[in-house]
Computed example of a mutant assay.
Amino acid sequence: MDFPQRLKSQRILRGWSQAKLAEELGTTPNTISVWERGISLPSPYFREKLCALLAMNARELGLVIEDEVQARASLETEQLTLNVQEVEAPVEPLGTAKAPGSTQAAGAGSLLRQGRLSFWQPASFIKRRWLLVACIILLLAGSGIGLTLLNAMRSSNPYMPYQGTLVLDDSLSGQDNRLNWMEGWNKNQASCQFKDGAYYSQQPQQGYFHACIAQKTDFSNFAYEVEMTLYEGDYGGIIFRAKDSLDDKYYLFRVATGGTFMLKQYLDGIDAHAVLLDQGHSSAFRAGFGQQNRLAVVAQNDLLTLYLNGQEVASVHDSSYLHGQIGVLAGNDTHAPARVAFTNAKVWSW
């Protein structure tokens, strides 16, 4: 029995409706329905809540299979062995770390998965290697070779899996007819505008957000990043894999002024129908108005990974939408109007 069947069985065993289980978890009935139909799996945030609520571990719920456990353990052992051989410098004693919402201290294996081993971690080693390469390039710059390499580094994808071609590099200071960003006002006076060297999304009505879509884009596997500055309202964010700019089917990654984020899958124009895929809070976000933050998503097949200022904050599996348009948004829950500026949009595609 796999996860969808086990979840439904446990829910029925307790006499709960999908709405009741959603209430207990702090999500929506649509989200529970999507899980039970096998369309997507819970994010780490909701896996932890499910395990605590049902008093079961991830393996008992069918969220982890034996082959995955063995493969993960083998990979961690190989990584640890590899890095011990490569790095002979003294290593500071490991402290304790807590996962979001957890009360148990994380061990070395958990720290490795969370990216907290500052010197042994492969990603950290890669960054140090790139710094060395950058220094060499600067030494070669006088000959012109370094400048060529430096430009290549600037155009390379900085997000895992570190592949793809830079296919969109837009300062958002003005319209690019190849992308056809939305412009103008709708009947509620929400708008998408290029002004003052940036692309603005504005929503005057309380309780709504306004999306601005690049209507000539269509990406499948990609990394998409943009710089965002909130001036008014409650949150801003990005939209990706939009089916059609008028169809209201897309993924939405929003971040509030204090650093609270959500990832939702929209099914139509009604927010209550949206599926909440993940949520949390990130200290990497520069809180408050007038602060510039860099939002990014890496979409590879059904794996969606979110970043704030270069730091991974969430990763979920969902196969509802596998390609589509990109966009930006401004919204408010209780503090209208919303006004958010966006600059320097980039997309690497593969």
Rank of each mutant, 00 (worst) to 15 (best):
L149P: 03
Y307S: 04
I126Y: 10
F240K: 02
Y250T: 01
L139W: 10
G62V: 07
G115H: 06
M153W: 14
L41Y: 06
T77V: 03
A338W: 03
K195Q: 14
D234K: 10
D67P: 01
F222Y: 10
R294N: 07
E88P: 00
S349M: 00
M228P: 06
D268Y: 03
L131V: 08
D169L: 06
L276V: 15
N301M: 08
A152V: 12
G269I: 02
L138Y: 12
G237D: 01
L263M: 12
S191N: 10
S191L: 01
F222S: 00
G146M: 13
D278W: 08
A190G: 14
A58F: 04
A223W: 01
T27H: 06
N83E: 13
K49A: 09
F125V: 14
Y321E: 04
L41P: 00
W350F: 11
N186V: 08
L94D: 13
S156F: 02
T31Q: 09
G288L: 11
F125A: 14
L322T: 13
E183D: 02
T103C: 03
Y321R: 15
Q10V: 00
E60L: 07
N177V: 12
Q114G: 07
A223R: 01
A274E: 02
F209I: 00
D176N: 15
M182F: 05
L80D: 09
A338K: 05
C212A: 11
G269C: 06
P337I: 06
E66D: 14
D302W: 08
L303T: 15
Y250M: 08
D196T: 07
W185T: 15
E24N: 11
L54G: 09
G237E: 01
P337T: 06
Y321S: 10
Q279H: 08
G331I: 02
S349P: 01
F209W: 11
E312D: 03
L277A: 11
Q85A: 13
R286K: 15
A211I: 05
K243C: 00
G26I: 08
K216I: 02
W181L: 05
Q5L: 10
Q18A: 10
Q79R: 11
F222Q: 00
A341K: 03
N151G: 14
Q215M: 09
S74N: 09
A108M: 14
Q206K: 11
T28H: 09
S191Q: 10
Q206S: 12
L246R: 11
L150W: 15
L132A: 07
F285T: 04
W181R: 05
G146Y: 13
S201C: 12
V91C: 03
Q203L: 04
Q18C: 03
K187A: 13
R178C: 00
S43R: 11
K127E: 11
T229M: 05
V64R: 12
A284E: 04
F3E: 00
E78A: 13
W16M: 05
R47V: 12
S220Y: 01
F261T: 01
L308D: 02
I65C: 06
